[in-house]
Design a protein around this nucleic acid. Structure first.
Length: 336
RNA sequence: UUUGUUCAGAG
């Protein structure tokens, strides 16, 4: 059993979910850890629905889920944005007298926040006696992602009044909250605070700064953060391209995309959304068509409805309405 | 041997 359980997890880390399932089947008497390991494998490999199905199967098999199982299934509810299922799970753990401590607590907060019920998230947060860094981060992220950037900032103050030091997760999400409400002053204050700590070099934090600055039109500041950042990832590049696009700098957007290509950084679907909007805002029809073609043929990215929408916009703006219509007819999701 | 939080996306 021990070897089998280890195998389930190992295959899951290597994104071989099928092998994890086989490893589970090969265990003659799977124990609670076996069930938990495969449940978590579904979650980690972006199969939240299968995770829920497996969770029900587990109960049918007479296995009482423990804290590990519940945290995993709550994570699945978060990614499915399934508030009703999440509440059911919460109700069950209340009935069983399980308290929302550490892992369970933050999983609940995260579930409620991701499902848009920030009031429930706060109830859980306030009911918790011991709050660690991740508990705080979970509620701060919840506020930041639900348009309550001001509350996120207040929570940051409260957190620092206690003995807890915010980390890169805290700053990245708060900055992104500031970008959403265009809280310029707070954002700059945070930037100053970050420069004093050694979090400056964190990629996610820098990426959030880039977005914050381009949202308020400070392209120069964003460029400075971007150029100083040594560990650029695809989000950094896409944020900068999108920042240029939103501020009308289509040429610059296309230029750093070329730079990306020469450095052999692989763009993703979101990168192309940013590029196509840059073209559509600037009326660069030919470039847009080239990019749309390249994304399929050179990069093997299947265009989604968001890319088709950009192209329809591009063609529509120059009066090529028939072609726009034909494109819609060829869309994979024509109902969009 | 199994569990929680962050950063980029169009119309």
């Amino acid at each position: 059993v021990l070897v089998g359980n280890t195998l389930i997890t190992m295959y899951s880390k290597y994104r071989e979910l099928g092998d994890s399932q086989l490893a589970f089947k090969d265990i003659s008497r799977p124990d609670l850890i076996s069930w938990n390991a495969l449940l978590q494998a579904f979650v980690e490999n972006n199969r939240p629905h299968q995770a829920l199905v497996f969770f029900l199967k587990m109960r049918d098999a007479g296995i009482q889920p423990d804290e590990f199982s519940l945290v995993s299934v709550l994570t699945a509810c978060s990614s499915l944005v399934s508030l009703t299922t999440g509440k059911e799970v919460h109700g069950n753990l209340i009935k069983r007298g399980l308290l929302p401590v550490t892992f369970l607590g933050s999983a609940l907060i995260d579930m409620y926040a991701k499902c848009g019920s920030i009031s429930d998230a706060k109830l859980v947060f306030n009911s918790m006696l011991y709050k660690d860094l991740i508990t705080w981060n979970s509620i701060i992220v919840g506020c930041a992602q639900n348009g309550h950037g001001d509350e996120a900032l207040k929570l940051l103050c409260l957190m620092r009044e206690g003995e807890l030091e915010p980390d890169n997760f805290t700053f990245a999400s708060i900055l992104s909250g500031c970008a959403d409400i265009a809280a310029v002053q707070q954002g700059q204050q945070l930037h100053a605070l970050i420069l004093k700590s050694r979090i400056t070099t964190d990629t996610a934090v820098a990426n959030a700064l880039i977005t914050m600055y381009t949202r308020i039109g400070s392209v120069k500041e964003a460029e400075e953060v971007f150029s100083k950042l040594e560990t650029k990832n695809i989000v950094s590049w896409t944020a900068m391209i999108g920042g240029y696009a939103q501020n009308g700098y289509a040429r610059e957007a296309l230029e750093i995309f070329n730079k990306m290509e020469t450095l052999e950084v692989k763009p993703n679907g979101i990168t192309f959304v940013a590029l196509l909007t840059a073209c559509s805002h600037a009326g660069l029809t030919d470039q847009a068509e080239e990019l749309f073609h390249a994304m399929k043929n050179r990069y093997g990215i299947i265009p989604g409805s968001e890319h088709y929408a950009c192209m329809v916009d591009v063609l529509g703006r120059v009066g090529r309405l028939d072609e726009a219509e034909q494109l819609i007819d060829r869309m994979p999701d024509g109902s969009n």
